[in-house]
Each structure stands twice: as structure tokens, then as C-alpha cells.
Amino acid sequence: NITNLCPFDEVFNATRFASVYAWNRKRISNCVADYSVLYNFAPFFAFKCYGVSPTKLNDLCFTNVYADSFVIRGNEVSQIAPGQTGNIADYNYKLPDDFTGCVIAWNSNKLDSKVGGNYNYLYRLFRKSNLKPFERDISTEIYQAGNKPCNGVAGFNCYFPLRSYGFRPTYGVGHQPYRVVVLSFELLHAPATVCGPKKST
């Protein structure tokens, strides 16, 4: 009989979020998941679920829940969905086509923008091939755009693969920082350890 609540607040209220190319993952297990707390949290810009209804989450049990978190621009949030393409979905964070879970995003301009620009948040701009679902690539190898080998030196046709967002408070909404948490639900042939409040007695 599990009684402790799942530590969703640790994920959602973290002081610093990860850059999207180096997205953070927390495994959540052996706890009671009260999703209504999240669902009623006012400032969400997006709360979209795939393969599961957000209002039914509290009735369900899962083997594991993974909480992935990172920061992207407002106009990139739409790429955090199954079957998407674009710089983020291709080179930074890719969801599987059969994704079961929820994508939760909110504007973090007050936290993550600075006058003069916040350059701490990076994304991958160049990559030889697209990421596989949930693949994480933190390499900083110089990207070779031409035929000539770069030998690890940036220059003509040789690019550092990461780019900084440089968030400023005055940017338009599409270019403002958004914090994103992706909850993915794993249902294995194993005992369920993460259940909603109704199922955990």
C-alpha cells in the first residue's frame, strides 16, 4: 500500500531547467500520482495528452512514469508532439509516433530571460542525422557541412553544433522561453508502482 505522493513538484518547480539538447529525465516510481494538482495549476500554456485522457489519469496505474524537462522557445512547443519535424524534434528531443503521455508547457519569461540576454539555454542546430525517439545527444563535436574534414576547428563550413537562445524579456511570445515537462507513461508486464489516488488503496 503506497502512500507517499509522487515528487512532481520537484520537477515542475525546479529552480533551473535543462537546455533542450541535454534534456533532463527523472524516473518516478513507487508513489501516488495526483495529476489533478498539475491539471489545476493555472499558468499552463499547453497540457496535451496522447493515448490517454488527462482527466482519467487519476484512475490509472503505470509501471513507471518518466518526467523529461527542458526549455525551448514558445514557437517550438508545437514540435513536442508525435510525428513532428523541425530543429527541436529532429536534433534535440524526439517523441515516438506511438507516444503515451502528456506534454505540459508554460511561459517562463520572468524566470529564464535576462536584460542583455540569458545565454545559458542551448539547443542543437546541426546534426548529421535525426534523433531516434528519446535519444539524447550531448556531443559538442564540430559539425562538418562541406567535404573538408574540420579536425575539431570551427570555421568555413565547420560549425559548433550548439546555439544559444539568448532570451531577453522584451522578445515577442514566440521567442520567449517556455518550460516543458513531458510525462511518459510506461506500461510493462510488471507490477504497477505509480497509481492515481483512487487506485492506491
Rank of each mutant, 00 (worst) to 15 (best):
residue 174 G to P: 01
residue 63 T to C: 07
residue 187 L to T: 15
residue 85 T to M: 08
residue 90 D to M: 14
residue 71 V to T: 00
residue 109 N to S: 00
residue 200 S to F: 11
residue 107 N to A: 09
residue 55 T to H: 14
residue 16 R to T: 12
residue 189 H to P: 00
residue 145 A to N: 12
residue 100 T to C: 01
residue 119 Y to K: 04
residue 163 R to E: 14
residue 171 Y to F: 14
residue 110 K to L: 09
residue 46 A to T: 04
residue 30 N to A: 09
residue 39 Y to S: 02
residue 196 G to H: 02
residue 141 E to Q: 14
residue 43 P to S: 01
residue 120 N to F: 02
residue 173 V to K: 02
residue 174 G to H: 06
residue 201 T to W: 11
residue 3 T to S: 04
residue 54 P to N: 12
residue 14 A to K: 11
residue 134 F to Y: 09
residue 197 P to A: 08
residue 74 G to K: 04
residue 199 K to S: 11
residue 7 P to N: 15
residue 189 H to S: 02
residue 33 A to V: 11
residue 130 N to E: 09
residue 126 F to M: 03
residue 55 T to E: 14
residue 149 P to G: 12
residue 129 S to C: 15
residue 15 T to D: 15
residue 193 T to S: 08
residue 154 A to G: 12
residue 164 S to Q: 07
residue 16 R to H: 12
residue 122 L to Y: 10
residue 142 I to F: 08
residue 56 K to T: 13
residue 53 S to G: 08
residue 2 I to E: 12
residue 142 I to N: 07
residue 48 K to D: 01
residue 90 D to R: 10
residue 36 S to E: 11
residue 144 Q to A: 01
residue 174 G to C: 11
residue 144 Q to D: 04
residue 5 L to I: 06
residue 142 I to Y: 10
residue 87 N to R: 03
residue 115 V to G: 00
residue 56 K to I: 12
residue 87 N to K: 12
residue 138 I to S: 04
residue 145 A to C: 13
residue 30 N to E: 12
residue 50 Y to F: 03
residue 169 P to Q: 00
residue 132 K to A: 10
residue 41 F to G: 14
residue 198 K to R: 10
residue 147 N to Y: 08
residue 133 P to G: 04
residue 126 F to Q: 04
residue 30 N to D: 06
residue 63 T to Y: 12
residue 39 Y to V: 14
residue 3 T to Y: 14
residue 120 N to P: 14
residue 192 A to T: 12
residue 15 T to N: 14
residue 1 N to E: 01
residue 138 I to Y: 15
residue 200 S to P: 14
residue 142 I to V: 09
residue 28 I to W: 15
residue 3 T to A: 14
residue 67 A to M: 00
residue 145 A to L: 07
residue 97 D to V: 14
residue 188 L to H: 07
residue 100 T to K: 05
residue 130 N to Y: 02
residue 37 V to G: 10
residue 98 D to E: 06
residue 189 H to L: 03
residue 141 E to C: 03
residue 192 A to V: 13
residue 65 V to F: 02
residue 35 Y to I: 04
residue 197 P to F: 14
residue 30 N to H: 04
residue 3 T to D: 03
residue 27 R to A: 10
residue 184 S to M: 07
residue 201 T to Y: 11
residue 126 F to S: 13
residue 151 N to S: 03
residue 64 N to T: 06
residue 45 F to I: 10
residue 173 V to A: 11
residue 163 R to W: 01
residue 147 N to C: 04
residue 59 D to Y: 08
residue 196 G to D: 14
residue 20 V to I: 01
residue 152 G to P: 07
residue 119 Y to C: 13
residue 16 R to L: 11
residue 115 V to M: 03
residue 2 I to D: 15
residue 90 D to A: 10
residue 196 G to L: 02
residue 22 A to S: 04
residue 116 G to L: 00
residue 187 L to E: 05
residue 153 V to Y: 11
residue 193 T to K: 11
residue 43 P to Q: 07
residue 169 P to D: 00
residue 130 N to L: 06
residue 125 L to H: 02
residue 39 Y to T: 15
residue 168 R to Y: 06
residue 154 A to T: 12
residue 194 V to S: 03
residue 118 N to Q: 04
residue 55 T to A: 09
residue 151 N to Q: 12
residue 156 F to R: 01
residue 42 A to Q: 01
residue 114 K to H: 03
residue 60 L to Y: 15
residue 117 G to S: 03
residue 111 L to R: 06
residue 54 P to G: 03
residue 194 V to E: 14
residue 140 T to L: 11
residue 122 L to G: 04
residue 188 L to G: 14
residue 116 G to D: 11
residue 53 S to P: 01
residue 1 N to G: 06
residue 43 P to A: 05
residue 16 R to G: 08
residue 45 F to L: 08
residue 119 Y to F: 12
residue 188 L to R: 12
residue 87 N to L: 11
residue 126 F to I: 03
residue 78 S to Q: 03
residue 152 G to S: 06
residue 155 G to W: 11
residue 197 P to I: 14
residue 130 N to S: 15
residue 3 T to Q: 04
residue 28 I to F: 12
residue 73 R to G: 06
residue 128 K to F: 08
residue 90 D to T: 14
residue 199 K to A: 15
residue 26 K to T: 14
residue 174 G to A: 06
residue 163 R to D: 04
residue 156 F to T: 15
residue 175 H to A: 05
residue 171 Y to M: 04
residue 147 N to I: 04
residue 108 S to A: 08
residue 58 N to A: 11
residue 84 Q to M: 04
residue 178 Y to W: 14
residue 18 A to Y: 06
residue 48 K to R: 01
residue 178 Y to F: 04
residue 188 L to N: 08
residue 5 L to S: 12
residue 157 N to W: 10
residue 193 T to C: 02
residue 2 I to R: 08
residue 110 K to E: 12
residue 151 N to T: 15
residue 154 A to C: 04
residue 160 F to C: 10
residue 32 V to E: 09
residue 90 D to E: 12
residue 132 K to C: 06
residue 46 A to L: 15
residue 115 V to N: 00
residue 169 P to A: 01
residue 153 V to M: 10
residue 198 K to F: 14
residue 186 E to G: 15
residue 38 L to F: 10
residue 29 S to D: 04
residue 183 L to M: 09
residue 123 Y to R: 09
residue 55 T to G: 02
residue 130 N to T: 01
residue 75 N to L: 09
residue 173 V to N: 05
residue 58 N to M: 14
residue 54 P to H: 14
residue 87 N to H: 02
residue 198 K to L: 04
residue 148 K to I: 14
residue 2 I to A: 01
residue 121 Y to M: 06
residue 173 V to E: 13
residue 2 I to G: 11
residue 66 Y to L: 05
residue 186 E to D: 14
